[in-house]
């Protein structure tokens, strides 16, 4: 939160006085906006989602058919979403807020369109039998969604989104095991950044 000097409002020229008053009002508005988005995510939720992704990655790697593989990850999506959302609800309730306050709606609206495209591509690629491209697409689109939504949240969120996109590049451009990268992303990154948010941003 950028702060500037405002000690001597009463001893300056009229123009400067006007500017300082405007600067003070802008500071109040910026601070309120910053505060309103500050607790829009749950670190515990991210950690829970990350922990659930690790066994899912192991289980998915054991599957021999595309349908079974994709079923494992879809199930993991449901479990991780349920964990993250319930812990977010708990956090917002503890703070006496609603998850659908102005900042929550902003986060959701920034996040959902990209995820909807991900769902569409998943269905389409699965029907075409091009499942091997899905891990890169999931990591990339999730990273893009997190980066976009992260504009209205703590700084760690867009950083996490960027790292997801780097993992996507690894899967799409290099011959690295897809389930390993999914485990690193949906498991590792969620746990690390979730811990950071839990420790430094209110739970």
């Amino acid at each position: 939160m950028k702060q500037s000097d405002n000690k001597e409002t009463g001893s300056t020229s009229p123009v400067s006085l006007n500017q300082r008053a405007e600067d003070n009002l802008r500071f109040i508005r910026d601070t309120m906006e910053g505060a309103s988005v500050f607790t829009g995510v749950s670190g515990m939720g991210y950690m829970g989602a990350g922990l659930s992704a690790l066994p899912a990655a192991w289980l998915a790697a054991q599957q021999t058919s595309d349908a079974a593989w994709i079923m494992v990850w879809m199930l993991e999506l449901v479990i991780a979403t349920a964990i993250a959302f319930s812990l977010l609800l708990r956090k917002t309730a503890r703070q006496g807020k609603s998850v659908l306050n102005a900042s929550g709606r902003k986060l959701l609206l920034a996040f959902l369109p990209t995820m909807a495209v991900g769902a569409l591509l998943t269905l389409s690629y699965f029907l075409q039998g091009r499942v091997s491209l899905l891990p890169g697409i999931w990591l990339g689109l999730y990273g893009a969604a997190v980066m976009t939504a992260g504009v209205w949240s703590v700084r760690a969120i867009p950083v996490m989104g960027a790292l997801f996109m780097m993992l996507a590049a690894g899967v799409l451009l290099a011959a690295v095991p897809a389930d390993l990268m999914l485990a690193l992303g949906f498991g590792g990154l969620h746990i690390i950044f979730g811990f950071w948010i839990w420790r430094y941003h209110g739970g």
Partner: peptide, 15 residues
């Protein structure tokens, strides 16, 4: 803009 905020949240927000 909040019902309440923790010390940690305020410290990080206000730097």
């Amino acid at each position: 803009s909040h019902k309440s905020m923790s010390f940690t949240e305020l410290k990080a927000l206000l730097q």
